[in-house]
Design a protein around this nucleic acid. Structure first.
Lengths: 334, 334
DNA sequence: TTGATGTAGTAAAACGATTTACTATAACCA
DNA sequence: TGGTTATAGTAAATCGTTTTACTACATCAA
């Protein structure tokens, strides 16, 4: 049982294919199709359950109503939640999302971009990694809307939506210092992206502003896709060897590993030892004691991303690039 | 700068479009194209960076190399993780995933199926809800591979991959009973799917087998998409009013809400009060004390789903339906 | 020499829509 | 009356592939 085509509808209604097409696309009025014909055709479409073949449509019009979403790892709760919000909002506007995870591999990301390109996606939402600049520039040269989020590539002039990581990190350290902490560690990753660098910069600046020394041995840079076992042993030695009284984790999965370590070595979080995690997670709220976190405004990020995409898609002239920086919130728990 | 087409390549190589197409699709040998021509064309393709337009390809061949994935909520960590595993495995075999969340709405799920249909996805992976039987049957009549996972629809004869929920639930209760628990509660949802019903059945059966009474007031059925506030207050009264000494949560998000309640009302988990959660979550491992959980074998589920899809896609004759039930593991923590 | 078989390749139809340029009739006005 | 405009609609080109059916020539066997 083959699917119905526009031709079948045309034959049934005894009108031309063109007429049916005009009606489907709401151009009937402007193309002066009579009310009677419109009704007849619509009735037939309704009754037969005909749905236009989107592939044929895409081939002809050159756009697919699909938005490509490229993230580091869709199973990370931060990306999963953003993806869900973006999907919802896109869906309401008639766009579908097709996504993939890069696993922080440039090669995989490039492949993905090519794949999306050959599928003629209308726009790209990318949480990029360094090394992708050229590939993204090609998309931009093609006049495809590209929105970077979470991470920026400063060499590229395009749209970006992200949180103010510098200030969030600064505030976190400030909070530690106000509690009287002296030896504050930072556990971060070695991914070379602005968003991560900013977190380090905020950390440094806060220390300096409050007259504390910046001590490199208190900054642990975890290699981005190493085994969790190694991560855990690195953190273990950091926490054991140094007289640390506070630690800021620069990502939620690092914080989760970190909390596992603390549990293992039975180090109590409390008055003597404070923790702040980056990006909220159910585990932080439920933890005893509750773990303070830097909360990125997911809803706002998603909304801004979609707004940027839609305004670009609907305007034929190139819009000026926007860099939208949204403040992150420090949620204190005890 | 328009993208290159097969025609551009044909002109450059001074051969016909047909020849180029044969070469691209590895049919050169069988169509007796000379080695010299093959090399020439491949060189030009390589140098020009030509990539076939997948849309045109799909239109002609009727398949898209896209697999549609429909889940309840992609931001739920269970689905996010499964999605990531499925995506990885599909990607390695040249398939892309396009996904969407149903939010447990039949209407949305139907819309999604239609959307996927008009996009000509090659196969469907669906975590279904009741009320979708007819729509899925239509796909089956169309000879499209459909794999249900996590939840089954018994009225439908198709492929299914899921965990053994009855036995997992039974074991959990058994474990409570062996610890000497007498008043064991079950917090579940009112979604009417087999997977949820089985968890209830396992609960009942274990009680009966061990000579404990089945008490309806100990089973709390939470309405599936109600506000978390309401859920929390319902659980609160369950935990406060009854002399419960153990509780099994039938989903991970219910367990998370439940743990919040326990924290709020300062009820300690320990010797007097045991908890088991369904579907693991980082929060359970980190919780103090650690929360025991029923772990579904995500990797195995994903692998079986993909295997089923691929074998269906590669065989032209209809394969017999398979129901793959994988044991879930009870992970005890303290 | 003829018919069969193999080699090397091509022309054109088809997939299912959109869109441009066109026709035919009616209505209107000066 | 004839020219213009509005109304109602259609034929055919097009998007970029795949695939079927074909041609043209060479070789071989009988």
């Amino acid at each position: 049982m083959k699917a119905l085509s526009i031709k079948d509808i045309a034959v049934k209604a005894n009108v031309s294919i063109t007429t049916v097409s005009f009606i489907i696309n709401g151009k009937a009025k402007e193309k002066s199709i009579s009310e009677a014909v419109i009704e007849k055709v619509e009735k037939i479409i309704e009754e037969s359950g005909y749905k236009p073949n989107q592939i044929a449509r895409s081939l002809r019009t050159g756009n697919s109503n699909i938005i490509g979403l490229i993230v580091e790892d869709i199973s990370n709760s931060f990306f999963a939640k953003i993806a869900r919000l973006i999907e919802d909002k896109a869906y309401k506007r008639g766009y579908k999302i097709i996504y993939s995870s890069t696993e922080n591999s440039i090669a995989k990301a490039q492949e993905l971009i090519n794949m999306f390109k050959s599928r003629k996606v209308d726009a790209y939402i990318i949480s990029p990694i360094k090394g992708l600049e050229e590939d993204i520039q090609i998309l931009l040269n093609d006049d495809k809307p590209v929105i970077l989020f979470d991470r920026n590539l400063p060499d590229l002039s395009t749209n970006y939506v992200g949180a103010n990581h510098f200030s969030a990190s600064y505030q976190s350290i400030e909070n530690f210092i106000e509690q009287g902490k002296k030896k504050i560690a930072l556990v971060t990753t070695d991914i070379d992206v602005q968003q991560i660098t900013e977190r380090l910069e905020g950390y440094k600046k806060a220390l300096v502003d409050y007259g504390l020394p910046y001590d490199e041995s208190l900054v642990l840079k975890i290699h981005f896709n190493q085994d969790e076992k190694d991560t855990i042993s690195q953190m273990e030695s950091l926490f054991k060897d140094q007289q640390i009284d506070a630690v800021l984790f620069a990502t939620n999965y690092l914080a989760i590993s970190g909390l596992k370590v603390l549990k293992q070595i039975k180090k109590q979080i409390g008055a003597d030892f404070s923790v702040i995690a980056y990006d909220d997670h159910e585990a932080f709220e439920l933890h005893t004691p509750g773990i303070s976190t830097v909360q990125q405004p997911l809803e706002e990020i998603a909304e801004n991303v979609i707004q940027l995409i839609l305004s670009q898609l609907s305007s034929k002239s190139k819009l000026p690039n926007q860099q939208i920086i949204i403040p992150a919130k420090l949620i204190l728990r005890d």
